[in-house]
Design a protein around this nucleic acid. Sequence first.
DNA 1: TATATGACCAATTTCGAAAATTGGTCAACG
DNA 2: CGTTGACCAATTTTCGAAATTGGTCATATA
Lengths: 238, 238
Amino acid sequence: MSGNPGRLRAPQQRAERATRILDTAAELLLRHGYRRVTIDDVAAGAGIGKGTVYLHWKNREQLFGAVFAREVLQALDELRQALRHDPRACLPHRFARAYFLAITNRPLLRGFLLDDPDLLGKLTSSPDTARDTRHSAMAHGYFALLAEHGLLRDDMHVDEIAYAYQATFEGFLRAEGSTDADGPDRRADLLARTVQRAFESGSAASDATLRDLASATVALLGDLIDADRAESGLPEEA
Amino acid sequence: MSGNPGRLRAPQQRAERATRILDTAAELLLRHGYRRVTIDDVAAGAGIGKGTVYLHWKNREQLFGAVFAREVLQALDELRQALRHDPRACLPHRFARAYFLAITNRPLLRGFLLDDPDLLGKLTSSPDTARDTRHSAMAHGYFALLAEHGLLRDDMHVDEIAYAYQATFEGFLRAEGSTDADGPDRRADLLARTVQRAFESGSAASDATLRDLASATVALLGDLIDADRAESGLPEEA
DNA sequence: TATATGACCAATTTCGAAAATTGGTCAACG
DNA sequence: CGTTGACCAATTTTCGAAATTGGTCATATA
């Protein structure tokens, strides 16, 4: 087990380097926007040669795609952590709140999702049908679970709720920041209350139900995270 | 009273011509986008000389601004008509539904509001602080009325409801069209139900209350319409 | 031998000045 | 008096040259 450092260390150092590259790329992306960040900039910022970048990603688009993918994965993981920590976080309004904050607190991710045109040149839109499909499948699965456990209003179809939920969520994401002197937390609370009233059934779920639902949702999230990570070209770190 | 046709007819013909110009401009705007529509195009389309356009509007920006203003006014008027026809249309969910449809059924207006970048070059954003101010004042007044009549949930502040309502509304406006095979009407219904559950108090309003509220709202809308029209450079037609 | 690099090249972007278009004016016309 | 289109300045478009950048690979290094 004390064996060949050449085999054992190399992959880890490689992963660390990939992370350093992504960190640099993310920072530059945020500061200067997609069009003004060159591969040379990223390489220089990460303290490596340009060619080395191409040892990790096939081209520029994949590199920046990985930056985006990592942001998404971090947000999803944050969500999963919340669910593990407290089963009640699987309730739609709590879920919405956590998701909202996970996005809002990541300026790059927020920019991507609102597709700020100079933050990412069509990276969000076209080449990403695969992930989008997975994510909406996950959403579908989540709402199906909620319906099964009787947590959704029964006077709307599940698909309708899912649609309305999505629209509402994105509305809040896009909405300007300022009712009165309020931070993202306040807006997240507002979103939560809106979702609760609009889509949740009145009945309170038992602890058992919640644990059940939470773990199923964690599983759903886990699958999504795995699938996303698999095609993301991201390092598999600690 | 049978007097000078020169004085009586001229203003009306002038208004008709203005309308013709705006119609042409709107059509071209929708077909080719802001940047590709020239004053010459508009003049030719309206069957007049270029100079004549400038007898109505000071410059290009004002002309297209008037196109936008007219769309807004038409939508507001449609709304007002609905309120006059049926007092129940002043309930938030009904109001949202009607407003949503009034916008969705006007592609140009929809483009403006979602500021489709090549439908209107920054016309929506910068020079229009005045109208925006009036409109949010109107929204504020409307929600204050609703609160007074006990039609809003009392577990949220009025300002919070107004903010959340706005966010939700714009979310639905932006949301892609298709749950399953559904038209704008179906999405409007979804929005209505969402608004109703999220923001309205359970209690049913009496007919008297509704009439009261409806006429107050009509007054509010009337003021807004008048103010908008006053600075719009629009003809005062039949 | 395996990995990292930067000189190198094709492809794209930027630049700049000339050409073309267009917003806006106004003398002339009806 | 209302309308117009020729006219002009200002803006936009064009297009070839110059500069930059994505991506490769022979070479250097450990």
